[in-house]
Design a protein around this nucleic acid. Sequence first.
DNA 1: CATGAAAGTAAGACAAC
DNA 2: GTTGTCTTACTTTCATG
Lengths: 151, 151
Amino acid sequence: MSLNDLDERIVHALAEDARRTYADIGAEVGLSAPAVKRRVDRLREQGAITGFTVRVDPAALGWKTEGFIEMYCRSHTTPDDIHRGLSRYPEVAAASTVTGDADALVQIFASDMRHFEQVLERIAGEPFVERTKSVLVLSPLLRRYTAGPPV
Amino acid sequence: MSLNDLDERIVHALAEDARRTYADIGAEVGLSAPAVKRRVDRLREQGAITGFTVRVDPAALGWKTEGFIEMYCRSHTTPDDIHRGLSRYPEVAAASTVTGDADALVQIFASDMRHFEQVLERIAGEPFVERTKSVLVLSPLLRRYTAGPPV
DNA sequence: CATGAAAGTAAGACAAC
DNA sequence: GTTGTCTTACTTTCATG
């Protein structure tokens, strides 16, 4: 499956404003509204578009402390173990298994430093976690799109 | 500015599906459609909601290689220098200055390993960059919301 | 915050290229 | 296979109470 230029421009338009009308997007890319909708529907079926979401300002919502936790896990910990263990934390914004020294990198949003510390301690106490190393975000410089990719 | 329970539930509903109708959301939270719209408008004015975007599957769009670059910068590099330097790269999905050894943490999406390597080399060659350390994502386990925060 | 009317938008069926 | 036009139903929006 490959996206042609038209699909890319539609996704790009939706990335900037997911509530734009199909007619509006169509005017930009040179299609009628139904044609745009059909392509969006197809992109959803293909799994290229997984949904629409709101872009929020963490700080404005009271999540003023952001950080990353590098997790070092015990032997025989599966990615699925980590996923199950972390999905219970609403403070976990993202998590991936990674190459390098650590086993996983976990992005955290907390209301303040005290909250961050509590989350860190609870995660460090998970049975599959051997040790952790964490860094705090000083300034969020750049953030694009939901899942991160440049479209 | 603080969000009450109603606002939170509206943001949560939009986070799950930003194209839901106001009437639909209203039925869930117990408000009429105009009432929901007014709150959303107010949240946008306040900056709590910064926009609506599409949630895409990077892999389905051809961005199959994800990684993080820890940047060690030269002295006297400002966050603004980093922002200016990195915003030119479409492959940069997110970037933050952080505590710890590295100065900044940069999230990258590339089409493949070769592409990732090229981006890494170009970023490492930026005048404000002293050295880099990079990790590759093996499995993206969890991803929530646009800007990352739990709502 | 709800109601109701007007304007705008979505979605499906259809024909045409 | 994809597109554009049309029609219907729904949603949004703004005025008013």
